[in-house]
């Protein structure tokens, strides 16, 4: 009998997929991707070399797909812990809409496609950085650090901080001090951002057995560390102006945003131990998103303005 005539489904594991295109889009973590796209775009536009507009769009698209691919691989590996956390239980893999193998294949194919596209059409330095970022997020953070140390998001934060550097490398073919500072801002911003979330999602993480800082060293120590990292990131945010990469306008905005960040972190530090509502932590989490967006938007506006004013006749 020819194989094609064998249409009986004796395999108990066989099932026809009910996953829609939207489920595959969800595997790419579109909200994280939007932040990656934005920061990569800022790195690319702020670079002193202007890339062909179409190649710039392709570079951003490749970085976005690479970030999405690492999100899909993260969801493949973390399906067991995602299933027990309320925030993530409805993700495509733990909810059963997408099978783990499908998510793995999707993530691997997109990883290879995005890195090769960036390498062939833009340059191999940015492609190598993208490949390293995917590797760092999936293997170093997801598979190793996340379940083993409360410093997981501190070190793993590097993966989220690379996109502006990749954007810069796509335009210039090198890694400048400017892009290193943009990397540092996101890297130092990650701990206060995630620990604010971990404070009010502490029980979720405990149920999943993830050693987030509040579960390991307690809320009081986490609040102090949030404050310490905020004290670090606020001045680093002003560094681009300090080194003369931007105008004083950016410096003022960054200083104001940093002062706001410290104010919110101070409120978190002053939070009572038994505070169940944790309003300061929730406010800190929301403000942290605004802070990062504001810093990068100000950097972008400053770069575009500087370039426009430098045009002959302007």
């Amino acid at each position: 009998m020819a194989l094609v005539e064998n249409n009986r489904l004796d395999d108990a594991g066989f099932r026809i997929s009910e996953a829609t295109a939207a489920d595959y889009v969800a595997l790419l973590k579109p909200r994280v991707m939007s932040l990656v796209v934005f920061t990569a775009f800022v790195g690319l536009v702020a670079a002193p070399v202007t890339l062909n507009p179409l190649l710039a769009v392709i570079a951003i698209l490749a970085i976005a797909i690479g970030a999405g691919a690492s999100g899909a691989l993260n969801m493949w590996y973390d399906a067991d812990i995602d299933a027990v956390m309320t925030r993530t239980a409805n993700r495509p893999v733990p909810s059963g809409r997408v099978r783990p193998g499908e998510a793995l294949a999707f993530g691997l194919v997109l990883s290879v496609l995005s890195v090769l596209t960036l390498g062939v059409l833009v340059n191999w330095l940015s492609a190598s950085l993208l490949a390293f970022t995917i590797f760092f997020y999936v293997v170093v953070y997801t598979m190793w650090l996340k379940r083993s140390t409360p410093q997981n998001i501190v070190i793993g934060g590097a993966a989220g901080a690379f996109p502006p550097m990749i954007g810069w490398a796509a335009a210039t073919g090198s890694v400048g001090l400017e892009s290193v500072i943009l990397f540092l801002i996101t890297f130092l911003w990650t701990p206060p951002h995630f620990w604010a979330l971990a404070l009010f999602k502490c029980e979720d993480y405990a149920r999943a057995g993830i050693p987030m800082m509040p579960n390991v060293v307690g809320a009081a120590s986490t609040r102090r560390q949030i404050f310490a990292y905020t004290l670090l990131v606020a001045p680093v945010g002003v560094l681009p102006w300090f080194f003369g990469f931007t105008s004083a306008g950016y410096g003022l905005v960054a200083a104001a945003l940093g002062a706001g960040f410290i104010w919110y972190a101070w409120n978190v530090l002053a939070m009572r131990d038994g505070d169940r509502a944790m309003k300061p932590a929730k406010a800190m989490f929301a403000y942290s998103l605004l802070y990062l967006f504001g810093i990068f938007a100000a950097y972008l506006a400053d770069s575009v303005l500087a370039r426009a004013l430098a045009l002959p006749g302007a």
């Binding site: 005539e5 249409n7 489904l9 997929s17 295109a21 595959y24």
Partner: peptide, 24 residues
């Protein structure tokens, strides 16, 4: 070969497949 041995997709599965096909 009897008909009940063939795969019969539900409406939900057909819609999902169509959605994936269009996206691809």
């Amino acid at each position: 070969m009897k008909d009940d041995e063939l795969v019969t997709m539900t409406e939900k599965q057909k819609r999902a497949r169509r959605s994936r096909s269009i996206a691809i």
